[in-house]
Simulated assay, not measured.
Amino acid sequence: MDTELLKTFIEVQRTRHFGNAAENLYLTQSAVSFRIRQLEQYLGVNLFSRHRNNIQLTAAGERLLPHAEAMLNALQRAKQDVAVSAELAQPFSIAGTANVWDAFLLQGFVNSQHLFPNLCWRADSLGREQIVRQIQERGLDLAILYDAPKVDDIQVEKLGDIQLVPVSSNPGASVENWQKDHIYIDWGSSFNLQHSRLYSESVAIKHRTTSAKIALEMMLHSGGSAYLPKAMLQPHLAEQRLHLVAKAAMITKEVYAAFLPKAANLNHIIVITSHLKQLLQS
């Protein structure tokens, strides 16, 4: 199949407009329409429903979308890997969920680059399901995440623990009143269970985010409280812009490395995971 057909399909889906898709792809509108017809004929289904300029994906189009994106991403990775191989540089891909990068992985990644300066690196922030799929498809060498994947062909190794500390912009915050302006950060399923055991579900949570950095900026500029990792807090506690919440419990998060046991880059993985363990213990 011509990958240009898939690119055109994704662009029409993104813009929901044949004319805009044509402009973005530097094609005529008739060329875009022809490509979509070609793809529909190849698959034997209609991919878009068209009602008075309201272009929507059909059920078949919805099913095709993740496959089209995966195929184009895999092709792009293959091109990069082939180009890198031609230059005699070895590629290495690492990914983590957003809050793993926020909590400690960014520093660990920078240090790992210094350990292996001749590697050609790719670093991504991905969701847990994407991480598991890319490891299985050999599109990812190493993943760092909080909730360990329970998949038979993926090796999981515990790296250590991260302490999440309850802090507030209010110097007088206590365990009785700190949730009034709480920013709930999604630290994963184990955190959610611990948090629900510690605190009443009757307290309405006004703000939620999947990013510790977003929560931190909200607290510093608009006030609030949240659970944040120690590594992010030290300068703000020292400057008294944030304050520990009196008598509130810390929550421990386990951190895991995930990779294929017969990965091509296994030697590098072993060294990098060892370094990350030391970083978590320091």
Score class of each variant (00 low, 15 high):
M1K: 04
M1V: 08
M1W: 04
D2L: 12
E4R: 15
L5V: 02
K7Q: 11
T8L: 02
I10T: 07
R14S: 09
A22P: 01
N24P: 02
L27G: 08
T28P: 07
Q29D: 11
F34H: 12
R37S: 12
Q38V: 09
Q41S: 13
Q41R: 14
Q41V: 03
G44I: 04
R50I: 14
R50T: 10
H51T: 11
Q56W: 03
A59E: 15
G61F: 04
R63Y: 03
A68Q: 01
A74D: 12
A78S: 14
A78W: 09
P91S: 02
F92L: 06
T97Q: 03
D102G: 00
Q107C: 00
N111C: 02
S112K: 08
Q113A: 09
P117S: 03
R122I: 03
A123H: 00
G127V: 01
R128Y: 07
R133V: 06
Q134C: 04
E137H: 05
L145Y: 00
D147M: 00
A148C: 03
P149F: 01
V151K: 07
Q155T: 12
E157L: 13
K158P: 03
S169K: 05
N170R: 06
G172L: 12
S174A: 10
S174C: 10
N177T: 12
W178L: 04
I183D: 01
D186W: 05
Q194T: 11
L198H: 14
S200K: 09
T209K: 13
L216H: 02
L216F: 01
E217Y: 10
E217Q: 14
M219R: 08
S225T: 12
A226W: 01
L233W: 00
L233G: 00
Q234T: 10
A238M: 07
E239T: 14
L244E: 07
A246R: 15
K247C: 07
E254A: 15
F259A: 08
K262T: 14
N265G: 13
N267S: 15
H268M: 10
H268T: 15
I270M: 06
V271Q: 14
V271C: 10
I272R: 01
I272P: 07
L280G: 05
